[in-house]
Simulated scan of single mutants.
Amino acid sequence: MPPPLCNPVAAEALFPKLINMEAEACRDMAEELFINKNIDAALYAIKTARLKNPNLQGLDNYLSSYMVHKVAVQTKSWYLVLGIKDHKAGEDEIRQSYEGLAQLFRPDECSSVAAETANLLINEAWEVLSNTKRRQAYHILMGYDDYNYNNSNNRSLYKELALIGRNLC
């Protein structure tokens, strides 16, 4: 009887298991890299896991939670944290984006160590962008041209701006 690896039937049965083990190892490595604050390497590892086994459950949620962190750190844009490219987005678009992400990061949907803090980031984005005064203050902070910056009559708006600035940085 030939050794098991020389047997094509045995090798064919073993191959999917090995691929799955490699994908799980990449996922676990991504989690460790994220814990060590190496978001780019974590993204690379989770993408590698997806290439090895695109059917491994939860990989898209892991990827999304890492991306929320990367966007928050690099851009400091609450719009981009929610996956919205235009700061003139309407309330419905903001709500839909928020609700979709909130669904992704529920504990029963995503077991990534990044999910809890990603959820905190999208909640903060929602709190700022769903409140008209806070959103206006945020627009001033970010330098968007569609607001009148010289209107100093609304002092509460500028107090809100100071709070948002502290939370975002």
Rank of each mutant, 00 (worst) to 15 (best):
132 T>Q: 12
110 C>Y: 03
117 T>Y: 11
132 T>L: 06
51 L>G: 11
123 N>R: 10
74 Q>A: 08
25 A>N: 06
69 H>W: 06
148 N>W: 10
63 L>W: 02
47 K>G: 04
104 L>T: 13
131 N>I: 01
152 S>Q: 09
118 A>I: 00
158 Y>H: 15
43 L>V: 08
107 P>R: 04
63 L>S: 06
135 R>V: 05
102 A>E: 14
67 M>Q: 12
28 D>A: 08
103 Q>D: 09
155 R>L: 03
150 N>R: 06
26 C>F: 01
81 V>G: 04
162 A>M: 09
121 L>Y: 11
156 S>T: 15
85 K>F: 05
29 M>S: 03
74 Q>Y: 10
108 D>E: 13
38 N>A: 11
28 D>N: 15
112 S>M: 15
129 L>Q: 00
131 N>C: 08
50 R>L: 13
142 M>L: 09
115 A>T: 02
154 N>V: 09
31 E>Q: 15
121 L>R: 11
111 S>V: 05
51 L>S: 15
119 N>G: 12
110 C>D: 14
51 L>E: 14
166 R>G: 04
88 K>Y: 04
42 A>R: 07
95 R>K: 09
140 I>A: 08
91 E>M: 03
22 E>R: 12
66 Y>Q: 00
74 Q>L: 13
88 K>C: 09
152 S>P: 02
49 A>E: 00
73 V>S: 13
68 V>N: 00
55 N>L: 14
51 L>V: 10
147 Y>G: 03
89 A>N: 10
